[in-house]
């Protein structure tokens, strides 16, 4: 059994979002980088749990990013996993990233691939589906529960206002969100052993970049709040109805 977990690097959730170079580049000034929460808390931890249950499982992590993603991938290795692969490329185009991951996946002969639900910076929710298509694998997005019995996976996924239980035989790609696992904090032993775990750097395969970011924009600032006295909630409802016309 071989599992691959896709790990991406994102700004911390409290990071101040601003742009430079005429709004064409994200300003990383003072920004703390973290493992994308969905990748760390759910995808990685569930994969580690599967390995704990069946120690013969081989668990690899992959990230597509430049050398500055190494602290992130080391931190992921401190939580768990046997080795990491970094594809030495930088891109915001989902197809390009997916093509790199699919190539690593093909070379490694994995049975199961986990991604996070989405990256909290580009919010594409698209890498998983693309990798699955490139591999011609089934893909179960937005899982809230994942169980494995031999080579058959039972996955509960979120749907519009409901849930669905799916079954599929490996190989399979699943995108993970809350519910799949509980966040783990790396311990000292993990941090020490992560230093010596292999981190392979591979050069990207040729792939096209199909999209490019032209510029960024911040939402317009709010005009300011209109406060209504606490003893007159009816006035708030009147304003919502007559002034804001929202219902």
């Amino acid at each position: 059994m071989k599992i691959l977990v896709c790990i991406s690097k994102t700004p911390d959730t409290t990071a101040k979002i601003s742009f430079t170079q005429n709004n064409t580049k994200f300003s990383s000034d003072g920004v703390q980088w973290i493992i994308n929460p969905y990748d760390e808390w759910y995808a990685l931890v569930r994969a580690i749990e599967l390995k704990e249950k069946d120690p013969s499982t081989v668990l690899h992590l992959v990230t597509v990013g430049l050398a500055d993603t190494e602290p992130i991938i080391r931190k992921a290795l401190a939580i768990g996993g046997d080795e990491a692969i970094r594809v030495n490329a930088d891109s915001a185009d989902p197809f390009y990233i997916a093509a790199q991951i699919a190539d690593v996946a093909r070379q490694g002969g994995y049975d199961l691939i986990f991604t996070g639900k989405e990256t909290i910076d580009y919010n594409g929710s698209s890498i998983g589906g693309m990798v699955a298509e490139l591999m011609d694998w089934p893909y179960i997005p937005l899982a809230v529960k994942f169980e494995l019995n031999g080579t058959v996976a039972t996955v509960v996924r979120e749907t519009e206002g409901g849930e669905e239980t799916d079954e599929a035989t490996l190989p399979l790609l699943v995108s993970c969100q809350k519910g799949v696992a509980e966040q783990r904090i790396p311990n000292m032993k993990g941090i020490m052993s992560a230093r010596t775990k292999p981190l392979k750097v591979v050069e990207p395969v040729a792939a096209e970049t199909l999209t490019s970011i032209v510029s960024f924009e911040l939402p317009p600032a709010k005009a300011g709040v209109k406060l209504i006295p606490a003893d007159n909630p009816a006035e708030l409802i009147r304003l919502l109805h007559e002034e804001a016309k929202v219902f």
Binding site: I17, S215, L218
Partner: peptide, 15 residues
């Protein structure tokens, strides 16, 4: 499109 979980927008060219 929205980016940074709704904290900003990006203008993306489809090539």
């Amino acid at each position: 499109k929205t980016v940074f979980s709704g904290k900003a927008f990006a203008h993306v060219a489809l090539n």
